[in-house]
Write a protein that binds this DNA or RNA. Structure first.
Lengths: 145, 145
DNA sequence: TTCGATGCAAATAGTTTGCATTCTA
DNA sequence: TAGAATGCAAACTATTTGCATCGAA
């Protein structure tokens, strides 16, 4: 699992792929965008410098990187999927009312993962994981307000 | 939260709605299908007796029932959402390799929910919840086989 | 007889795919 | 210069919506 842009590009090449300016720009965008970018967000970042890049190319590169294990995507409820580097993989808490995304703290996740492995032989993947519910604000506010 | 078809239909009527044969059939289908039916699965069950029912009608009724709090839907990874009665709401474990859906045991879920409430002020909803990872079989089998 | 429910078809959102062209190695 | 990567447009899947008609209460 690579920890800098060049290392990911190297892995791409090592797997028989080629390094293009679009791929370089997308990998950089993944490192620069700290949050939970959608394919469209990433496309916009890449297109800032390379206006002619197609959405489908973004999807294809993300797919390639996912197969290499460098990227993961998650469906946070409705709407488009979000992508992030595998090295930055973390479990998510998504508020179904306001859409707020928080990270699930490591300790709680580890406790859950360990317990699921033990009781149900299920190995949870941290990256592709989202728990929905209500955030603090929405939980304390009367429903539908 | 109703526990039999008639009670749900009664709630529908009490909220200003009308009881039609399609609605009756769909509510029955929800009770009959014990698993994780998609809107299409439910449409097929209803259409067995009422061939002219439109998919959009199924979506609309499910939406109505969801607003009444009688039904919940969940996105289990890719593909269509699955629906179930609120009374049968339970957390899911989805295998991202083979698609197997298991139920998460109550005790583990409760432990997680309680801990999240305490540490992150997040109130998890049992129904709309899915943890992805690898099931026992897929975890022990080498990747990509 | 009124207003909610429905069928049908078209619209939408997100993503994938086919194919001719371009460019890396 | 071979084969991978890309742009473009069309296809696709899941779901929603507009509108005229139908039917429950």
């Amino acid at each position: 699992m690579a920890t800098d842009p060049q290392a990911i590009l190297d892995r791409l090449r090592a797997s028989g792929g080629r390094i293009t300016s679009t791929r370089r720009a997308l990998v950089n965008a993944l490192f620069e965008h700290g949050g939970h970018p959608t394919a469209e967000d990433l496309a916009a970042m890449v297109q800032a410098r390379h206006p002619d890049v197609a959405q489908s190319t973004i999807y294809r590169i993300l797919d390639d990187l996912e197969h290499l294990g460098e990227v993961q995507h998650t469906h946070l409820g409705h709407g488009p999927a979000v992508y992030h580097l595998a090295e930055a993989a973390h479990p998510h808490l998504v508020c179904e009312e306001c859409g707020l995304v928080q990270e699930l703290d490591r300790a709680t996740f580890n406790q859950l993962a360990e317990r699921l492995a033990r009781t149900q032989h299920f190995s949870v993947s941290a990256g592709h994981f989202a728990v929905t519910g209500l955030c603090r604000d929405c939980a304390t506010r009367p429903a539908g307000v």
